[in-house]
């Protein structure tokens, strides 16, 4: 055959190649930095703000509230508001490709879709895990600095605190991956962000209003409540055990990711 390619040995591309490409991809758009920056500012800022609020009003709190106070409480409150931002990054890394049409270029370069989505998941997971850990520790130290003014601060050596702070970083990475799955399923930025917002924020509020003991049971299995359990140094009333909760959240993520993969494989790009 006179075909020019026939003679040329094509080196099989490896998963490492696709990983490296996805790594370059996530680091070469500004939206990655802005999203992570916004997430960091909100998480650290709100942790500090809540620490300030707790310090200022600790004396007015009920004795019961004072008894259950942990130095992680400001961070737990801040997570509630900040985690959706990390979800937005997970959505954007895939829906931006659909919005621009880049997905067709991408899938021409990497036609094996499982490989592609796996690489994207790993890269997103690693990026958000690293940033998430840093932000989680920063939030902890920032809030403890403020809590220390009232002598309410704790340390990483306290029971369950180190696990809670590290767990926070892992939780953020899982949220981003869950959002990636949602984005892959919906292929639309705004729609996916709304769905992630409902899953991570609205459902938690709705769950809080459910009446009776069945309400409490349902409430603790809701995604954001299950995942947030990892942030409590000791297991709280109406919460799953920390690792159980995070494992359940990981399971939710895995189910969505599996559904996304099935559709992604089958659908026309």
């Amino acid at each position: 055959m006179s075909d020019a390619t026939a003679a040329k040995p094509a080196k099989r591309m490896r998963f490492a190649n696709v990983l490296s490409a996805e790594w370059t991809k996530i680091l070469t758009v500004k939206s990655t930095f802005w999203t992570l920056f916004a997430g960091a500012v909100v998480l650290i800022g709100f942790s500090a703000l809540w620490a300030l609020a707790f310090s200022a009003s600790f004396d007015d709190m009920s004795s019961n509230d004072r008894a259950t106070f942990t130095p992680m409480l400001p961070i737990q409150a801040a997570f509630y508001f900040a985690m959706v931002i990390f979800g937005a990054l997970g959505v954007l890394v895939i829906t931006a490709e659909y919005a621009s049409g880049m997905i067709r270029t991408t899938l021409t370069a990497v036609p094996r879709r499982v490989t592609y989505l796996a690489a994207k998941t790993v890269v997103l997971g690693v990026v958000v895990l690293l940033v998430g850990l840093a932000v989680s520790f920063a939030s902890f130290y920032a809030s403890q600095l403020i809590l220390a003014t009232k002598g309410l601060d704790g340390s990483l050596g306290d029971r369950g605190v180190l696990r809670a702070v590290i767990g926070g970083g892992v939780y953020l990475a899982l949220i981003a991956i869950l959002a990636l799955a949602v984005g892959t399923l919906l292929r639309h930025t705004a729609g996916s962000i709304v769905v992630v917002f409902v899953l991570m924020f609205v459902l938690g509020i709705v769950g809080g209003f459910l009446p009776g003991s069945w309400g409490d049971t349902v409430n603790k299995y809701l995604p954001s409540n299950a995942g947030s359990a990892i942030l409590s140094p000791t297991r709280q009333q109406g919460e799953l055990a920390p690792w159980t909760g995070l494992a359940l959240f990981a399971a939710y993520t895995l189910v969505l990711l599996a559904a996304a993969l099935v559709l992604f494989k089958r659908r026309d790009a």
Binding site: A21, T28, G101, T108
Partner: peptide, 30 residues
């Protein structure tokens, strides 16, 4: 295909590039 871009080059839609990425980085990713 073992390494598709080494066997097939295609231009389907010239606008199918992320707007925020530079030309060089776009090619680098591929």
């Amino acid at each position: 295909l073992a390494a598709p871009l080494r066997e097939v080059g295609a231009l389907l839609d010239a606008k199918a590039v992320h707007g925020g990425r530079s030309a060089r980085n776009h090619l680098l990713v591929l």
